[in-house]
Amino acid sequence: MSLSTLDLPDPHDGALRRLSDLLVRRARLLTLLLLVPPLLWLGLVYLGSLFVFLGQSIFSIDEFSGTIVREPTTATLLELFRPANFDIVQRTVAIAAVVTLLCAIIAFPIAYYAARYAGPRVKAGFYLAVMMPLWSSYLVKIYGWKLLLAKEGAIGWFAGRLGLGGALEAWLALPLVGGPSLSVSYTGMVLTFTYLWLPFMILPVQAALERVPAHLIEAAGDLGAAPGLVFRTVILPLAMPGVVAGAIFTFSLTLGDYIVPQIIGTSALVLGQAVYMQQGTAGNVPLAAAFSLVPILVMALFLTLAKRTGAFDAL
């Protein structure tokens, strides 16, 4: 039998096949089918509950009975501006900003090496090394850092061994960043956060750098830009969406965290703890909701500013 005379039977025409016919002809129906479950989940369950909770912030708590007064008022939102509460907002945003900056500074060279120089084997090792800390328990890591940062912990011991004990003491004697020991200072808290969230910065930055075509870097050099200038004018702007994506992670994760500050730091509350305390132990759901609005507003502001500065131009 030759190829020209070969007579193949048609494939069996089953119900699934007919369904496929329908979906192929009506691409919109397929899109709809694919999107409905996640949209229901996101829209109703997730966003719905979030907005119901946030909506509480327009109510207030009756000072005497502690019950929630369900009449719209701005009193609760204005409470945020009471000095003690506004301290919490400023403190948390400042910590998140420093953590984000530190993450970006540490992550960039690592991501750059992985994206541009590492071979396939090194890259596999790199992914493993970056991801591995994410596999162990978050609490274990925090307790580990507490031990590292303790007065009689590993960092102090090493500093002493290297003759840097004096430098550590001098740092701890500084007014804002210091304290009785690293584990009860802002320095310790920022270091712990930076360690915890670093993978969330490295991975998007690395992905962004990998998408910068090698030709663009060559072109910049070809046009006369020395490496430093190439970095500033081409690589950094093109990697910026990755840095911003990473910053969204590190910034919002720091804004929302309430476990690390319980274990490491100065005992001064951050937003997450304030929400927890107001909602959980004080029963002041409206104020907790008002506090919860802060990270959302801060992130919105952050993204707006990032867009203004052209961080997304290369998208």
Partner: peptide, 13 residues
């Protein structure tokens, strides 16, 4: 107690 909560938060801060 309502005020104890907010004032103690301020003390911690």
């Amino acid at each position: 107690y309502y005020r104890w909560v907010s004032d103690y938060i301020a003390v911690l801060g």
